[in-house]
Amino acid sequence: DETGKELVLVLYDYQEKSPREVTIKKGDILTLLNSTNKDWWKIEVNDRQGFVPAAYLKKLD
């Protein structure tokens, strides 16, 4: 059920640097789980959840 889920576009590649982070690729469109922290957003990638720098993402309307 995708209702109410926010999507984000990945602006730059990011390689995870800790187990709490996930790797993302430029151009991916992913589900945003939590954006309350202005610097690190929690997203879902391939059934994995983790954090990436918010500056690497853009919210889609």
Results as ranks from 00 to 15, higher is better:
residue 36 T to I: 08
residue 43 I to C: 05
residue 15 Q to F: 15
residue 43 I to N: 00
residue 25 K to R: 12
residue 57 L to S: 00
residue 26 K to C: 08
residue 22 V to H: 03
residue 51 F to C: 10
residue 24 I to S: 01
residue 51 F to T: 03
residue 7 L to E: 08
residue 31 T to I: 15
residue 15 Q to G: 07
residue 49 Q to L: 06
residue 18 S to F: 06
residue 34 N to P: 03
residue 60 L to Q: 05
residue 7 L to C: 11
residue 27 G to D: 06
residue 38 K to C: 09
residue 9 L to Y: 10
residue 32 L to Q: 00
residue 31 T to W: 13
residue 28 D to T: 12
residue 22 V to F: 06
residue 5 K to A: 09
residue 59 K to F: 07
residue 6 E to G: 12
residue 28 D to V: 05
residue 37 N to W: 07
residue 34 N to R: 06
residue 33 L to A: 03
residue 11 L to W: 03
residue 36 T to A: 13
residue 1 D to M: 12
residue 39 D to V: 11
residue 16 E to G: 12
residue 52 V to P: 01
residue 26 K to V: 07
residue 44 E to K: 11
residue 59 K to N: 05
residue 58 K to S: 09
residue 50 G to Y: 08
residue 41 W to C: 01
residue 5 K to Y: 14
residue 42 K to R: 10
residue 29 I to N: 02
residue 7 L to H: 14
residue 37 N to F: 08
residue 61 D to L: 09
residue 34 N to Q: 10
residue 14 Y to I: 02
residue 39 D to Q: 12
residue 21 E to P: 05
residue 24 I to D: 00
residue 45 V to M: 10
residue 17 K to L: 09
residue 37 N to C: 09
residue 56 Y to R: 05
residue 40 W to E: 05
residue 26 K to S: 07
residue 11 L to N: 03
residue 41 W to F: 04
residue 48 R to L: 07
residue 60 L to E: 04
residue 27 G to F: 04
residue 47 D to K: 10
residue 25 K to Q: 09
residue 38 K to Y: 07
residue 2 E to K: 14
residue 34 N to D: 15
residue 54 A to H: 03
residue 22 V to A: 09
residue 25 K to L: 07
residue 29 I to M: 05
residue 38 K to V: 09
residue 1 D to A: 11
residue 38 K to F: 07
residue 10 V to H: 00
residue 2 E to L: 13
residue 30 L to D: 01
residue 58 K to W: 07
residue 43 I to A: 02
residue 47 D to L: 09
residue 14 Y to G: 00
residue 28 D to P: 01
residue 24 I to E: 00
residue 37 N to K: 06
residue 23 T to Y: 02
residue 57 L to T: 02
residue 39 D to P: 02
residue 41 W to Y: 05
residue 44 E to H: 06
residue 59 K to Y: 08
residue 33 L to F: 04
residue 56 Y to E: 02
residue 45 V to S: 10
residue 51 F to W: 15
residue 11 L to Y: 03
residue 51 F to M: 07
residue 48 R to T: 07
residue 25 K to M: 09
residue 34 N to A: 09
residue 35 S to R: 08
